[in-house]
Amino acid sequence: MSNRTNGSGHLMLITPERVFYVGLLGRPRQRCSGAFHVYVAIEGAFHHVAEDGRETSGELVVVQPNVRHTITSDYRSVICFMIEPESVPDGAFEALARRLAEQGELFARRIRAAYARFLEQPREGITSAELDGMCLGEPLPQRALDPRVARAIAQIMRFSGEPATAEACATEAGLSASRFLHLFKQETGISFRAFRAWKRARHLLHFANQDLNLAHLAQDIGYPDSTHFSHSIRRFYGLKPRAIFSGSRDLAIYRGRQPAQPDSAWTQEAS
């Protein structure tokens, strides 16, 4: 656990399938995250600008994965609940978005209550299902992935040694590269390359409150160079890497429990 208790109340809980973040929003430009986002205002309201330019305001905002958007807030800090798209079956996000739209006030209260409960009694080892229950009232359904794709995802998320390539994953799966890439997108809904890029940027969150050499971190995570690292992080988060680290100095980071299944796509994520 990387925990710095200085009274800010800023924290982040990371499981392989979820992120529950309470901290500074910053002043991002347009962002395009690979996860489903539920933004909840701690105070005041959000101002959301969608990819098509439409503007909405409210205490709860939902954004689908891989959709460009800009979020500003009346209050400096924000609650954000992120859900990885490959962890739930097709249609789950659409159904959840409808529930959140119909009962936004209820879910905003529930997510704020989850934060208050965790702030009062923080702990390691929470599961994604438990976090879903706290925030949404019940666990989301789990997607059943083809074992060959699940093993490829686990390889992508090891973040040690050489970065996973489609060719290596295809060989491991006993498929041609083209057949593997087709299967991967069919199972996850996203291309191998885009999936790997998002998971690499997501892995940065594990180190956000540490005093690290960012060039070395970029190399360790698998970026070819610092320029690629900076551009990728800004695309996903709307902020430069250094701004993320600067705004996370007082952030307490907790890690959830990994799934127990040996072939789970998430068992290999670094802790």
Score class of each variant (00 low, 15 high):
2 S>L: 10
4 R>V: 11
10 H>V: 01
14 I>D: 00
15 T>I: 00
19 V>K: 01
21 Y>N: 09
27 R>D: 07
28 P>H: 08
28 P>F: 03
30 Q>R: 15
32 C>N: 05
34 G>H: 05
36 F>Y: 08
38 V>M: 04
42 I>M: 12
44 G>A: 05
53 G>V: 03
54 R>M: 12
56 T>K: 15
58 G>H: 05
60 L>G: 02
61 V>K: 03
67 V>C: 11
69 H>M: 08
76 R>G: 13
76 R>P: 12
76 R>A: 15
77 S>I: 13
77 S>N: 13
86 E>W: 12
87 S>C: 01
89 P>I: 06
90 D>G: 14
92 A>W: 04
92 A>V: 03
93 F>P: 04
94 E>N: 11
95 A>F: 02
102 E>M: 11
104 G>S: 09
105 E>Q: 12
107 F>E: 07
108 A>D: 04
108 A>S: 09
108 A>C: 09
114 A>I: 01
116 A>R: 15
122 P>E: 02
123 R>S: 10
123 R>I: 01
124 E>M: 05
126 I>N: 02
130 E>H: 05
132 D>W: 02
132 D>S: 04
134 M>Q: 13
136 L>N: 01
141 P>F: 03
141 P>Q: 06
142 Q>T: 15
144 A>W: 02
150 A>T: 11
150 A>D: 07
152 A>D: 02
153 I>F: 03
154 A>R: 00
154 A>V: 04
159 F>G: 01
160 S>E: 12
167 E>G: 11
174 G>Y: 01
176 S>C: 01
179 R>F: 10
182 H>L: 12
182 H>V: 12
188 T>D: 10
189 G>H: 02
195 F>D: 10
195 F>A: 03
195 F>Y: 06
196 R>H: 13
202 R>W: 10
204 L>R: 09
212 L>S: 10
212 L>R: 04
213 N>V: 07
218 A>S: 03
218 A>G: 11
219 Q>K: 15
220 D>L: 15
222 G>F: 09
223 Y>R: 01
223 Y>E: 09
225 D>T: 03
226 S>D: 14
226 S>W: 09
227 T>N: 11
228 H>E: 15
230 S>Y: 08
233 I>K: 09
233 I>Y: 05
238 G>N: 00
243 A>L: 06
246 S>L: 01
247 G>S: 06
249 R>C: 07
256 G>I: 02
257 R>V: 04
258 Q>G: 03
265 A>F: 07
269 E>R: 14
